[in-house]
Design a protein around this nucleic acid. Structure first.
Length: 446
RNA sequence: GUGGAUAUAGCUCAGUUGGUUAGAGCACCGGGUUGUGAUUCCGGGGGUCGCCGGUUCAAGUCCGGUUAUCCACCCCA
């Protein structure tokens, strides 16, 4: 007996119905925001990813040599592919470029809950716009996507932070530019590491600088307690430089846009979020489950230097990714997944062999008219057939028996209301349509 | 990649100090006196007890290994 590979999923119809629901929400929401869908190959050259993330990434890739001797890998993410597509046509794409993708990504990791080896991710990016308006639009899309699933402010929040502000803060502490990214790497671990360990990491990060690790750590601990915009402004009030003032103006613009969209309640300022990746350059954010174990549902931020690093032109960019696994887990826990619903509108039951031709003709007509119609393959007794119809989830049963055909009618029985009407067969399509729109009474009887 | 726990039917789980042919509920399939509910009654199929080896007269049960799953690390693009 074969089984699927570890970390890979199989989708039975009821599973795929859920998956399609998630994809539908992703796609519909992105389109409402004016994002256009793109895609790229799932198999790419290994270099595309080592260029961005370094050789150490290979440990977590599904990579191999193909029959032509090429070093290739299943894509672990879609951003480098996006950068390539945009770079190739950078001169002719109208800006801002608002694109989204829904694709399967692969990572060779030991799986655990919420973390598989193959997963789908929703990515949305805006390229070519350096100002905070693009950041706000991306965050708004992230929020509205989660809301479209039925999640609201009590269910999740956006923890918003800013690497630009972090760099300005570290500069004010005297941390040199070339050590700042390493220090942020330590900040990323602040919540989940022991004090002694942190001090050691900070010492490593500050090696070769004049800074005292313990002092820097202490200042950082104070800095991360700032959780409102006024507190931030007060903190930087003593700064005479132009840069902090300009950055705080960006913060006002960003939060002003989100407030105007009615999304202010979903945002909280949280400087502990820095995101581990070195390539983020400005606002960064994560969508967090508010109850439960507080897993990240989505994450993103501004990455103004990445497109150029991957061989493209100077191209400011901001985006986020949202995985299907954690979203599905949360929706399951909140009972927000739709009931399995590809039930037929009509299910014809045939009580005698001589009635079958009429049933087949009518089912075919209903199908051509766009309705979901099914029928029993076997003739049988009424009780069995009506039960089969109900188990198929049919809202309405069409009854084809000798009595009905002799009278030139077919009975439409509503399985929920447990009553029925008879309609002339030659009017069935129109009457069936009326039943779907307004129930049996709307269709009238005879 | 490291450590811990778990593994019996499609699902949720029983299975006695080791003892004969492996159990339940749900699900699935079939049948029950002329056409209005079957949410009922009866019956049935489905298991290498994760896999390999060891101990024993005898292993679902004890031991070792292995694989998978879950959890915590690592990582989190």
């Amino acid at each position: 007996m074969f089984t699927s590979l570890p970390g890979f999923r199989e989708f039975y119809p009821e599973d795929l119905a859920v998956q399609n629901h998630i994809f539908d929400i992703w796609k519909r929401t992105a389109r409402r925001f004016g994002f256009r869908q793109w895609d790229a190959p799932a198999l790419e050259s290994l270099e595309l990813f080592t260029e961005k993330s370094g050789e150490e990434i290979v440990r977590q890739l599904f990579n191999f040599e193909d029959k032509g001797g090429r070093q290739v890998t299943l894509r672990p993410e879609m951003t480098p592919s996006l950068a390539r597509l945009v770079a190739a046509r950078a001169g002719s794409l109208r800006r801002p470029i608002k694109w989204f993708a829904v694709g399967e990504n692969y990572r060779y990791e030991k799986q655990q809950k919420g973390r598989l080896r193959a997963f789908y991710q929703f990515n949305a990016d805006i390229l070519g716009e350096p100002g905070p308006a693009a950041d706000a639009e991306i965050i708004a899309l992230c929020i509205e996507t989660l809301r479209a699933f039925g999640l609201e402010a009590p269910d999740f929040r956006i923890r918003l932070s800013d690497r630009t502000l972090w760099f300005l803060f570290l500069e004010s502490l005297g941390v040199p530019e070339n050590a700042a990214a390493a220090v942020l790497g330590v900040v990323d671990k602040l919540e989940r590491s022991a004090p002694a360990e942190l001090e050691k990491m900070m010492t490593d990060a500050l090696a070769g600088t004049a800074c005292v690790p313990a002092n820097v750590l202490e200042c950082i601990r104070k800095f991360i307690t700032l959780d409102t915009l006024p507190a931030l402004e007060a903190f930087f009030a003593g700064e005479t430089g132009e840069k902090p003032r300009a950055r705080l103006a960006d913060w006002k613009t960003l939060t002003g846009i989100l407030d105007a969209m009615g999304l202010g309640d979903f945002i909280s300022l949280d400087l502990t979020i820095v995101r581990g990746l070195a390539y983020y350059t400005g606002f960064v954010f994560e969508a967090f489950e508010r109850t439960g174990d507080g897993r990240a549902l989505a994450g993103g931020g501004r990455y103004d230097a990445l497109v150029k690093k991957l061989g493209g032109p100077d191209m400011p960019a901001v985006g986020f990714g949202m995985g299907d696994v954690t979203v599905k887990n949360l929706l399951e826990a909140k009972n927000l997944l739709p009931a399995y619903a590809d039930a037929p509108d009509f299910y014809a039951i045939v009580l005698a062999p001589e009635c079958r031709a009429a049933a087949l003709a009518d089912v075919a007509a209903l199908r051509r008219a766009g309705m979901h119609a099914e029928y029993s393959f076997k003739d049988g007794k009424f009780g069995k057939l009506v039960q089969a119809a109900e188990q198929a989830g049919a809202r309405n049963v069409l009854i084809y028996g000798p009595d009905e055909l002799a009278a030139g009618v077919v009975k439409i029985r509503d399985t929920k209301e447990r009553r029925e009407i008879a309609v002339p067969r030659n009017e069935l399509a129109a009457r069936a349509d009326a039943v779907l729109a307004g129930g049996l009474d709307a269709a009238g009887g005879v």
